[in-house]
């Protein structure tokens, strides 16, 4: 499998990274050489092998349903590039 320029652009858009023509070309080369290299995994027989879900075998601990966090709206927004009162502000979204 190999990627073409259009695919690079499509992935970049999915990842929300704008990409110049020149960068897209460079990326195309890099991605293809990496993909070609990882292609060697196809030699490995994985029939009947379960994909790894977690390297540590243990049960997921669950917490009790109690309110133990929150209540600091100011701390939530103060690092934001734009906020008003305690709302985050973003360029208008049209649904």
């Amino acid at each position: 499998m190999s990627v073409d320029l259009a695919t690079v652009r499509h992935i970049a858009h999915l990842a929300r990274i704008s990409i110049s023509d020149e960068d897209a070309k460079n990326m195309e080369g890099d991605l293809n050489s990496i993909l070609e290299w990882v292609e060697q995994l196809s030699e490995v027989d994985t029939d009947g092998v379960e994909p790894m879900t977690s390297v540590v075998h243990m049960e997921m601990k669950k917490r009790d349903d109690v309110v133990s966090d929150g209540g600091y709206a100011e701390k939530i927004v103060h690092n934001a590039p734009a906020y008003e009162e305690t709302f985050f502000m973003v360029p208008k979204v049209i649904e």
Binding site: A82, E84, T86, F87, F88, M89, P91, K92
Partner: peptide
């Protein structure tokens, strides 16, 4: 707001 959306 005219040009911004507010997020909560």
């Amino acid at each position: 707001h005219p040009s911004m959306s507010f997020v909560d």
